[in-house]
Amino acid sequence: MVAAFALNVEDMREASAPAPGGRFFALFDANALIAAIARSGDRAAFVALFDHFAPRVKGLLMRGGTPAELAEEIAQETLLTVWRKAALFDPAKANASTWIATIARNRRIDIARREARSRLSQVYEILDEDGPEQPDETISGAERDARIRAAMTGLSADQYRVVELAFLEEFSHQDVAQRLAIPLGTVKSRLRLALSHLRGKLEDLR
């Protein structure tokens, strides 16, 4: 897992995008790409962003058990939302991956629960627009995101898998237990351990 992470970071560094139209992005800088879309509807920037993130959104959804076709549709809608809402992205609040992951979550809810006329994505949007989280907040969202990445490299492969499923699977520890073929109590205790590990790391950093 740690190795996979390192590899992906390298991918991001190497994915310098010589964009059609004469622009050139020396590094894959998602913030700059989103800013370019917000500023001038830069289509080359959108293509670079799409090529990087859409296959990852699709991969993440499929890891959570979403069928490929549906995952593809949600990934499309996610990047379409990125295109339309680029001006609302605030790099001080969260990094691009986090912002896009929350958009993917909301679009997944809209699409997966469309027959139930779910309004849950609006609930998340209301919470997101709500004021500052802590008046005494000393670190920026982007800094926090970087620290969380660091903290996650300290998870064992087992812990990483359980954390992944905690976010990606419908809320049922029983399902996770069956999937990993381990007892339910073990799932709960591993999840608590993994989350408290993360929490401990984050509290050290506060």
Binding site: P55, R105, E133, L202
Partner: peptide, 29 residues
């Protein structure tokens, strides 16, 4: 609220680490 934002950042990190799966539709469609 702070913890939820941190957990959302965990998902951002999961997104960075996941194995990409090729899209069959293009960006500009």
């Amino acid at each position: 609220r702070r913890l939820v934002h941190e957990l959302e950042a965990v998902q951002g990190a999961l997104l960075d680490r996941i194995e990409p799966v090729a899209m069959s539709t293009g960006a500009l469609d």
